[in-house]
Each structure stands twice: as structure tokens, then as C-alpha cells.
Design a protein around this nucleic acid. Structure first.
Length: 943
RNA sequence: GCCGGGGUGGUGGAAUAGGUAGACACGCAGGACUUAAAAUCCUGUGAGCCGCAACGCUCGUACGGGUUCGAUUCCCGUCCCCGGUACCA
């Protein structure tokens, strides 16, 4: 590879790309507007967090794909919205601020500038006039506004949608709250209309707080002391914070929460209406975790006033219950434990507390628990069963209590064996109960009171009816999904627009900052750390308007707030009156194609769907689902190179052995910078220069075939592993088009793959060859006006067809291959004719918009872009040009062909008759034994 | 464990309503050009066999079976890899 590709007469990407970037900027080529005469198409990339490291080499993968698709849709006549922006609130900028004292807005701004520069270098067709930044006050004004709208709303299960809080207050005034079916706090007492009317205005207000979609609650949260903040479940991995790796503990705190659980069922149902990958939908389904079952109330022996409620998905096994298990944290534990068992129970609770979350997860096999001494009464047969506590029952799921059926559940079975508790079979279909539990639903019930002799399908309704009659249980659907914690004790985020006033009972009540005073701007602080009294950094706020009168909410919103609605802001980014105008929303509606990584499956993508459904309920947006189709680009992993240092007393100087020969020596592998390795061959001179400490002048290298080959391993891309490849370096050397094409060529878009540049020369050669179709060896323009011949048309039409199919399927790697074949074939045909090239450019422009600049002028296109809509016309030409040919195999060998014009699709029978005739002719009248016609392309004949 | 996706040359990967496996590219080898190198171009390149050559033959898509005229593709079983999730009652 020449280090300076491109002389004056050669393809010179640096000059071409620079020229066209300036041109696009000047002419605002990619600026788009609402155009009711054309259909819209919205292509969205997941916007990046602008980190200090600059654009990651994995980012362009998805951006290139979405850019290709945007260009493709434009060529087909769509008005394409293709914007970019920045998710610019976040922890790293704040950490940096803590270390350096620099305002996060400053560093964030610098990072964004760099990102934009890099993105523009890559030639994306974004409309930069629509750029958004979540940390701009003009943007987060509307994030705060949505928060306030959520606060002003409640979820009505009767209408199954969110409604303004006024409709709830009205209902309270009419009939109290006994008939209200709402998503609300658990501790809401029932009251009548009269009682409601008797309440003070403030008491009424306090009451509504239990129903609003954002609310304050005492919640167990993931508290990370290292970061001084609360984290969401998806920010915690293996008991430590995802960012920074600090330990995380469970802590009870007053927190802003969002009632996403109100939408659990709709979030589940909506998945059936959208075109996402099955694995992603499955992840969301698991996260929401719907299970259908029943709540059953068990009495407690000696405690007539108490009962234990359990959730079960198998009420039909109720007669097989031989013990109960409570979570150690369950509130009844202390009340029902007998004196004799007190010490054992206390010890057990103590030991579970010591076990970290991590230990509990890692160690699933150890069976432990303690007997409380109390007994529960099975409401169906009045039999007492012992109550245990055990840490395999989770306080956070269901009621924190389970009815244990050892014959049907393996964990219960294990527990029963360990504590020597009875195992009662309840179905005649159950087998091997001595060895393991059998969760079958086959057979008829035995030992089962009112359901004896029934089947599974018959039993459940009988049991539920029996329970409901007596008020001891009911059918119930349970979700794993929890309400989302909405506060972070951090500085660099949207301030929660709330202040507090002390109420009658001395408790502070939250009130919204009036909407016309939004945005509540992030105040400046002298330090980005929590205050001495342990308040969040906003405790240091200076210049807050009402600070002397009221206490402000000091937490900020979580990272996902700003990203949960940003696709609407692109529709109308400058609007200061609304988050986007109804006109813009009505035209652009929803995202037709969304590209991004799978890592957001249970975070961003779930919260966004939640907010969207809320906005829909309140009439602000028209569509129920925000992202119609979603493609996940695979993660780009790092590809590390290694050198092998020989470990031996024999040598006084450092010795490195090539990878293929390392088995013959004892060696230690060392990471080596991938940027001084090409095709896994080490540049020894550069290596020596870069590591004088170990590889200086007198180091020895044991080569194979004259080269030093490096070892390879796929790892996460990181600085310490010396495997980071900066896209800028590639662009500087080969040009953006080569990088773009290469990233597409690397493999299927959705597949995770290690980044390596081993094949990049191939795509560079291709683009150069392509360039040469247009220019002669002196760099002069070659395009002329001759009509193409049949062979040339054939090549073009074949390519157009293939590329269109591949593009529709997001199979860009095969599309690039098809281009390569096309250019090779045209090259040998010496084809350089205007009409052919017109079509070729339409195809190629998504991938290489810079290469063919002269064409814009020569063909009279609007400069710098392509708007020709010739796609529909070529297909007709293709039909006239070509024919289907069916080879006829006789005893496995091709001996003849039959052909059909493309406009007449023969039936299989017609083919068989024709094949028969052809074979007979070929064999001079002999008749074949068997003719098998295969629809696709081959006719087999057996004689 | 469960759920989802995979296993094809030296490498990245093509091809699945069943129909010439290995497109395209990298790498490698040989050749042309060159004082030389780089770049470029041409030829070859799954493994093996036969032969002067042409033609041709056998085996090959993780492994073992099955269905079929025909299986990388469909079915059953096994092994391995990647991603997600985790005591969810």
C-alpha cells in the first residue's frame, strides 16, 4: 500500500471530500423542510454521548448504514428526515468537572464540536440545522415540561390511558375513590365523596400525589456511595456500578419515581405491532415479566388478625402446599416468630444481610433457611403448614412470600428435602418425585379436595371462583417491571422543576415550578460535589429565584430523561412555544427506521416507548409506538495484537519470537499497538522505536518467512490494550468513502465483529477502479454520450436489482460485493457512457457520493446530491433484456436448456412438458422415465 | 438453568419457499512492468486423486442419524461458541 495514494491524475479522496464538504455547507444541500406533496421517511440514529475520547470506531457502523438508507429513500422520492444530535448530560463530564473544576457545559461543548467535525468528515447527509443537545436549556425546558405533564396526570385503568388529574378529582367529588381503578400507591385508604369534600385543599392535594404518574416515594434504591448517587437497575452490573465499578448497596430513600408499571401491559402488547428483532422484543418481554396467576390469602395460626398473601402462577397446586416461605425482609417475620425460634431467625436474617447481592446471585445451590415456629393455614383444607424464611424468596417480587409446593417446584423440592418436609403428589401424572419435582400439568388431580379428578384446564377456574366467593383470593396478573426511580443526586442533569412548601402536618409537599417559568436552569455551583451535610451538589446552587422563600428539589433527572423524547425535537428544534409544533408532528409522526445498539433494550428503548404512549394518551402525538422498525448494528470489538517475549536465562537481551514459532519457546505475550501492525505483520523498526525500554537497539527478533507475525485476540476496545483504532487516521489515509465502504463490507450489519483493517486495501482499490471508469490516465473526464450496448445494460441492471434488494434487507456487505463485480465487469467492457453512468451513480451515490463529482455538472443534476427517480424504470428494461434459463440435467449432467422470456412465467406443468419435448428431441425420440421440474432453475431427468 | 442467535477454505464472509457450495475481498504463490522497490495489471488458490495435457473423478458446510432424485438449507439427537437473563414463586 502506497502511503500517499492519489497523485494529481489519480483518485484523490482528501481533495474531493474537502471540496464537497464545503459545497454542502455552503449550499445547505441536506437541509430539509416539511413538504406535504411528498411522502415522509424518518431515519434516526441513536444519538451519542459526546465523550472526551471522540467518535468511537464503532459509531460510524450504524451511521453509515442509516446514511445509505436515507440516500436510497431520497432517490425513491421520499422526503427524508435524517438528523443528528447529542445526549449531552452524563456522568463522565461531571467526574471530569469534579477533578478539574471546569464546568461540564464547557467540556461537553468542546467534545460536541469535535464530534461534529468528525461526523462531517465522514460525509453523512444529516440536516445539521436540526441538531439537538439534551443539555441545552432550550431543549431541557421541554424535558421538564413533560415531567410536569406526567405529574399532572394519572392512569385510569377503566379507559386504559393517562388522563389529566382533574378527571380524578372530579370522580373523587362524585363518588369518592372506591370505584376508581388507577395505577397508584399501595397505601391509599378508601374514602367517600363526602369525606373528600370535607378535606382541606391541602389534604386533597396531598392525596392526589398518590395517583400522579410522577410521585415521591420511599423506595429501596441502588445507592452508590462512590458516585454519591442513586443508580437504576440497568446501571448496576454484578453489584457494582457500570460506570466506575464502585460497590452498590440497597438503601431506603425518598425519591422521585415514574409510574411506568401503569403501562406494563400496553408496553407488552405494543411489541406485537412493531418491526424489531425477536431477540430485542424478547428482552423487553422478559424485563416486563408478565405472569398470570392468583393471589391467595393464608391465615396464620394463633394470629387471627394476620394473614399472609402469596402470588402463585399455579393455584391448581394449592393442595400440595406443605410449607410457606417468607423473604427474610418480610414485615410479618418479626411478628409471628415464636420465642423458641427467635434466635435462629435473627441469626439467619443477620447472615443474609452480610451476604452481598453478588454472593447471593453466584451461589444458587446452597439451600438455607430458618423456621419461624409459626404455622399458616391453607384456606382450602384448613391444614396448618410451617412458615420458614429463606433468601431464595425475594422481597421485591410478588408479595415477598410463596406457598411452597415441593412436588411441583424444584426449588421448593430442594428446600423440602433439606429440611425434611413432606412432599405430597397432587397430579396422577407426576413421576419420580423421589428424585426431583415434576412441574407437569398432565393428568388428574389427587389429594386435592374440591378439584380431585379434574384436569389442569378445569381446575383453575373452579379454585378462583371458590376463593373469590369467600374473599380469600383472586386471579391476578403480576409484572416483574418496577416503577422507575427518577432522581439522581448529581449536578450535570436536568433540574427536577419542583419546590417544596411545608404542609399542615409539618411534612413538605412538592409543587411544580409554573410552566411559564421553565426552563428551570441548572444553577452554577462552586463545587460539583455533595455538600458537607450530604445534600446533592445542587444544595450549593447560587442564584435560584425563590431560594429564600422555598426549598428547591435538589436532585436532577436520570440520564434517560432527555433521550426519551428527542426524536420529536428534531421535527421542530427551534420551537420555543411547544416541544414541537402540531404541524411538524403531524407530518413526521414517528421514526420509520431506528438504528442503534442492543444495549439499550431495557433502558432507553423501554422508557421512550413509555413516554411516547403517555404523550399519545394526552393527545400530544399521533402514534402509539415511536419506532416502527429497529435495526441493531453489531458491536465493534477490539482486535488486539501480541508480541511474544522469550522467557529464558540464556539471553542477556530481549528476544521476541514470531507467533507461529512461539510453541518452541517459553514466552510471555505482550500487547502491541495495533497501529504499528499491518495484516498482523509487525513493523519491527517502529516497535523498537516505540518501546526503547524493552525493544531498543539490541533486541532480537526471531522471524518466520522473513516477517514478524503477531498473535491476535478479540477483546474490548480500550486504550490499555493498545487496540484502539481512530477513524480519523483511516480517513486521513484512505478517505471517508473507503472507511464507509469498508465498514459495510466487514460483514452483516447486525453481527458483532472485531475491528480490523486487514482488508481495507480491497475497498480502496475498488473505489479507485470506480474512479477510473470516469477518468483517463491523465485525469481527464471520460464520460460521453454513446448509448450503452446490451452487455453493458445487462451488467448495470443486474447490479441495480441486486443492490436494491440488498439495501431493502440491510444486507450492505453483499451490496458492496455486487458493486465490485459490476465495476470489474464494466472495466473489462471499457464502458464509459453517459446513460449507463447515470444509473450507476444513482446506485453508488449512497456509498461514494464524493467520487463522481463531475457527473453532477455533466448530467445537470442538482449539485452534490441526487434526486433522480429512475429506479422504477429500469426494471421494465430488465424484463425485456433477459430470460429465465433452465438447464436440463439428464442423469445428473447438464445436456440441454430450455428458456422462457421473463414476461411469461410458465407453470411447472408447462415446464415439464417442454422439458420432456426437449429431452426427447435431444435423445432422438427416446422417452425419459422421469422428469422432475424444480421451480427454481433446474430440470432433472432420470433415464 | 432458561431465552435468543450462530458453527462454511489460511482469514472476513457469499449462497437457505431444498437445486452447479465457497460470490466478493483479504492473504498467499507465480508472472508482467521497473535499474530496483512501491503502486498497478494478469494468472492460480477447499482437500485429495488420475493424467503429457484437455477432459475428468472422489471427499468436503461442527458431529451422528433421518426425509428426498437431490440437504449448508428441512426433521431428530449430540457437542461447541456468542449475546441476554438469572433463585420471578
Amino acid at each position: 500500500m502506497n502511503d500517499q495514494p492519489g497523485t494529481l491524475n489519480e483518485y484523490n479522496p482528501q481533495a474531493i471530500e474537502k471540496k464537497w464538504q464545503q459545497f454542502w455547507e455552503q449550499h445547505q444541500t441536506y437541509r430539509i423542510h416539511i413538504d406535504p406533496t411528498r411522502p415522509k421517511y424518518y431515519v434516526l440514529d441513536m444519538f451519542p454521548y459526546p465523550s472526551g475520547a471522540g467518535l468511537h470506531v464503532g459509531h460510524p457502523l450504524g451511521y453509515v448504514a442509516s446514511d445509505i438508507f436515507s440516500r436510497y429513500k431520497r432517490v425513491l422520492g421520499f422526503n427524508v428526515l435524517h438528523p443528528m444530535g447529542f445526549d449531552s448530560f452524563g456522568l463522565p463530564a461531571e467526574q471530569y468537572a469534579i477533578q478539574t473544576g471546569q464546568h461540564p457545559a464547557l467540556t461537553t461543548g468542546q467534545n460536541i464540536t469535535r464530534y461534529i467535525e468528525q461526523l462531517k468528515n465522514l460525509g453523512f447527509s444529516y440536516d445539521w440545522n436540526r441538531e439537538v443537545r439534551t443539555s441545552d436549556p432550550g431543549y431541557y425546558k421541554w424535558t421538564q415540561w413533560i415531567f410536569e405533564e406526567l405529574f399532572k396526570s394519572w392512569y385510569n385503568y377503566k379507559t386504559d390511558r393517562a388522563e389529566p388529574i382533574e378527571t380524578l378529582i372530579q370522580e373523587f367529588g362524585h363518588r369518592g375513590n372506591s370505584r376508581v381503578q388507577a395505577a397508584c400507591d399501595e397505601d391509599v385508604p378508601t374514602f367517600s365523596a363526602a369525606e373528600w369534600k370535607a378535606m382541606s385543599a391541602e389534604a386533597k392535594y396531598a392525596f392526589t400525589l398518590k395517583y400522579r404518574l410522577t410521585y415521591v416515594a420511599e423506595a429501596t434504591v441502588n445507592w452508590c456511595a462512590g458516585l454519591g448517587s442513586v443508580l437504576s437497575n440497568d446501571e448496576v452490573k454484578d453489584g457494582v456500578s457500570e460506570r466506575g465499578g464502585f460497590p452498590v448497596e440497597q438503601k431506603l430513600m425518598r425519591q422521585w419515581m415514574m409510574r411506568i408499571t401503569a403501562y406494563a401491559q400496553r408496553l407488552l402488547d405494543g411489541l406485537n405491532t412493531i418491526d424489531w428483532t425477536e431477540s430485542l422484543k424478547e428482552q423487553q418481554r422478559n424485563w416486563i415479566g408478565r405472569s398470570v396467576g392468583a393471589m391467595v390469602k393464608f391465615g396464620v395460626d394463633q394470629h387471627a388478625d394476620k394473614s399472609i398473601e402469596v402470588f402463585t402462577t399455579r393455584v391448581d397446586t394449592i393442595y400440595g402446599v406443605t410449607f410457606m416461605v417468607l423473604a427474610p425482609e418480610h414485615e410479618l417475620v418479626s411478628k409471628i416468630t415464636t420465642n423458641a425460634q427467635k434466635q435462629e431467625v435473627a441469626e439467619y436474617i443477620e447472615s443474609t444481610k452480610k451476604r452481598s447481592e453478588r454472593d447471593r446471585m453466584a451461589d444458587v445451590k446452597t439451600i438455607s433457611g430458618a423456621f419461624t415456629g409459626a404455622y399458616a393455614i391453607n384456606p382450602f383444607n384448613e391444614q396448618p403448614v410451617p412458615i420458614y424464611i429463606a433468601d431464595y424468596v425475594l422481597a421485591g417480587y410478588g408479595t415477598g412470600a410463596v406457598m411452597a409446593v415441593p412436588s411441583g417446584d424444584q426449588r421448593d423440592w430442594n428446600f423440602a428435602k433439606h429440611f425434611d418436609l413432606p412432599i405430597v403428589p397432587i397430579l396422577d401424572g407426576q413421576q419420580n418425585l423421589e428424585k426431583e419435582a415434576d412441574a407437569t400439568k398432565e393428568g388428574k388431580y389427587i389429594n386435592s379436595g374440591i378439584i380431585d379428578g379434574l384436569t389442569y384446564a378445569e381446575a383453575t377456574p373452579v379454585l378462583v371462583a371458590w376463593m373469590e366467593e369467600r374473599g380469600i383470593g383472586k386471579a391476578k396478573i403480576n409484572y416483574r417491571l418496577r416503577d422507575a426511580v427518577f432522581g439522581r443526586q448529581r449536578y450535570w442533569g436536568e433540574p427536577v422543576p419542583v419546590y417544596y412548601k411545608e404542609g399542615e402536618n409539618g411534612q413538605p409537599l412538592p409543587y411544580l415550578i409554573p410552566a411559564d417559568e421553565l426552563p428551570l436552569e441548572l444553577p452554577s455551583v462552586n463545587k460539583y460535589l455533595p455538600t458537607e451535610t450530604g445534600e446533592p451538589p445542587l444544595g450549593r446552587a447560587e442564584g435560584w429565584k425563590y431560594k429564600s422563600e422555598y426549598a428547591y428539589e435538589l436532585s436532577t433527572m436520570p440520564g434517560w430523561a432527555g433521550s426519551s423524547w428527542y426524536w420529536y425535537r428534531y421535527m421542530d428544534p427551534e420551537n420555543n412555544q411547544e416541544f414541537a409544533s402540531p404541524e411538524a408532528i403531524d407530518y413526521w409522526r414517528d421514526v420509520d427506521l431506528y438504528l442503534g445498539g442492543t444495549e439499550h433494550a431495557t433502558g432507553h428503548l423501554l422508557y421512550s416507548r413509555f413516554w411516547n404512549k403517555f404523550l399519545k394518551d394526552r393527545g400530544f402525538v399521533p402514534e402509539d409506538e415511536p419506532f416502527k422498525k429497529l435495526i441493531n448494528q453489531g458491536m465493534i470489538q477490539g482486535r488486539s495484537n501480541f508480541v511474544y517475549r522469550v522467557v529464558s536465562e540464556e539471553y542477556s537481551k530481549p528476544v521476541f519470537v514470531s507467533a507461529g514459532l512461539r510453541d518452541q519457546y517459553g514466552t510471555t505475550p505482550l500487547h502491541v499497538d495495533v497501529n504499528i501492525v499491518e495484516n498482523d505483520v509487525l513493523d519491527v523498526a517502529k516497535f523498537k522505536a516505540s518501546r526503547p525500554d524493552i525493544a531498543g537497539e539490541n533486541a532480537e527478533f526471531i522471524l518466520e518467512a522473513g516477517k514478524y507475525l503477531c498473535g491476535v485476540e478479540v477483546e474490548k476496545m480500550s486504550k490499555s490494550k493498545l487496540n484502539v483504532v481512530n477513524p480519523d487516521d483511516i480517513v486521513a489515509r484512505y478517505g471517508a468513502d473507503t472507511l464507509r465502504l469498508y465498514e459495510m463490507f466487514l460483514g452483516p450489519l447486525e453481527q458483532a465483529k472485531p475491528w480490523n483493517t486487514n482488508g481495507i486495501d480491497g475497498t480502496f482499490r475498488f473505489i479507485r477502479k470506480f474512479w477510473r471508469l470516469f477518468y483517463n490516465e491523465n485525469g481527464q473526464w471520460l464520460v460521453t454520450d454513446y448509448a450503452p450496448n446490451k452487455d453493458e445494460l445487462r451488467v448495470l441492471h443486474k447490479t441495480i436489482k441486486k443492490v436494491q434488494e440488498d439495501t431493502e434487507n440491510f444486507s450492505f456487505n453483499t451490496a458492496v460485493s455486487a458493486f465490485m463485480v459490476c465495476v470489474n465487469e464494466l472495466g473489462s467492457l471499457k464502458c464509459a457512457k453517459k446513460s449507463i453512468l447515470t444509473e450507476l451513480v444513482i446506485l453508488l451515490s449512497p456509498y461514494a457520493p464524493h467520487v463522481t463529482e463531475e457527473l453532477y455538472a455533466a448530467l445537470g443534476h442538482e449539485a452534490g446530491t441526487l434526486s433522480s427517480a429512475t429506479f422504477p424504470t429500469w426494471q421494465a428494461e430488465l424484463m425485456l433484456e433477459d430470460a429465465f434459463e433452465y438447464p436440463i440435467q439428464i442423469n445428473g449432467k447438464v445436456r440441454a436448456t430450455i428458456s422462457f422470456p421473463l414476461d411469461t412465467m410458465p407453470s411447472d406443468i408447462e415446464k415439464e412438458v417442454l422439458a420432456n419435448e426437449t429431452v426427447q428431441k435431444w435423445m432422438e425420440g427416446k422417452s425419459p422415465k422421469k422428469v422432475i421440474v424444480v421451480p427454481k432453475r433446474i430440470v432433472n431427468v432420470v433415464i
